[in-house]
Simulated scan of single mutants.
Amino acid sequence: MNYKSIKDPIEITYTVERSKFIGNIAKTNSVDEAQKFIKQISQMYNNATHNCWAYKVHEGGREIANYSDNNEPSGTAGKPIYGVIEKFGLLNVTIVVTRYFGGVKLGIRGLIDAYSKTAEDVVKASKVVTYEKVFIYEAKCDYSNFSFIQNLMQKQNNFKIIKQNFSDEVYFIFEVLEDNKEDVLSLIKNKVYKLNLVGNSEGTL
């Protein structure tokens, strides 16, 4: 399954009418991870006026989403934050926006705009990337064929060698995206005399 999420957890700050909004974002792969991240940020800023949040994850074969206004007026915080997740088409992500009230009421429209802007700014600061299923293989070949494989990797940029060991032969481990797997394997299968699938994960290569 390919999906868009953010690359790195990051924090940004936005100030409007003396209220300080702090946006935090993280890649979370389950409801449990999302809840732990929300708890972590809420504890970090436990003296804040509000810690509002939204998440969307893929778990158990379905998409699960939730959000909270954390005592802000209904619909002014959690839903706008979730709206940003939807706007960018993100999955497996959690955003927490912390507010320190600055003494000036922002009104319904002002709150919606402030929470939306903070959430959008933290998404943009983190960078959106596409995650794909990555297969990990181990292989052995001679030196001349390893040179061919290295040149192929540099030219096509659709697989990546993550470990290599040189002796009388070359042992190496490489990652390849699911969409590129058949093409890469067909190109190198006659160049190696050992090729085993050792696992899979997700990544961006």
Rank of each mutant, 00 (worst) to 15 (best):
K105E: 11
L106F: 10
L106E: 04
G107M: 06
G107S: 05
G107R: 01
I108W: 05
G110I: 02
L111M: 05
L111W: 00
L111N: 01
I112V: 14
D113R: 10
A114Q: 00
A114I: 00
A114E: 00
A114W: 01
S116H: 13
K117S: 09
K117A: 08
K117V: 04
K117F: 03
A119K: 01
E120C: 02
D121N: 13
D121M: 12
D121E: 13
D121K: 09
V122L: 09
V123R: 00
V123I: 14
A125Q: 08
S126E: 04
K127T: 14
V128Q: 07
V128M: 10
V128E: 12
V129G: 08
T130F: 14
T130G: 04
Y131S: 02
E132V: 11
E132F: 15
E132D: 15
E132Q: 07
V134N: 05
V134W: 04
F135A: 01
E138A: 11
A139H: 02
A139Y: 04
K140H: 12
K140G: 05
K140F: 15
D142Y: 15
D142P: 06
D142M: 05
S144Q: 11
S144H: 14
S144Y: 15
N145A: 06
F146L: 10
S147P: 01
S147H: 09
S147M: 08
F148M: 09
F148H: 10
F148A: 11
F148N: 12
I149A: 00
Q150W: 04
L152K: 07
M153N: 06
M153A: 13
Q154P: 06
K155D: 08
N157L: 13
N157R: 13
N157Y: 03
N158K: 08
K160M: 10
K160V: 10
I161D: 02
I162K: 02
I162D: 01
K163R: 12
F166N: 04
F166I: 07
D168M: 11
D168F: 14
D168T: 14
E169M: 11
Y171D: 14
Y171I: 07
I173Q: 14
E175A: 09
E175G: 03
